[in-house]
């Protein structure tokens, strides 16, 4: 068994869930911030977008790491 190979496969296969879960976390954070500050839908939209960007950024980081390692 190749250690780098298994490591990469396991890490890559969890990326799909990460995108959606980080945007859900952003939604939850925005929802409670809205409740706390009294705005309507301001922080929800901002934080959901930031969560989506976080998911995409995670994919970018993993791909950058994948290009640098040799199998």
């Amino acid at each position: 068994m190749d250690k780098q190979f298994i490591k990469q496969i396991t890490r890559m296969s969890s990326l799909g869930l990460n995108v959606i879960i980080s945007s859900l976390i952003g939604f939850a954070m925005g929802y409670y911030l809205d409740k706390y500050t009294g705005y309507i839908y301001l922080f929800v939209i901002i934080f959901t977008l930031i969560g989506f960007i976080a998911g995409i950024y995670e994919i970018y980081k993993q791909i950058k790491k994948e290009i640098n390692t040799k199998i």
């Binding site: 969890s14 869930l17 990460n18 879960i21 976390i25 930031i50 976080a54």
Partner: peptide, 21 residues
């Protein structure tokens, strides 16, 4: 300031996806 939110979110999403799978 922007990256810290993004990094915290992507760090928080790990245990969620770990448990949810």
């Amino acid at each position: 300031p922007i990256m810290i939110i993004i990094e915290v979110m992507s760090a928080l999403s790990r245990p969620f996806s770990h448990a949810l799978r």
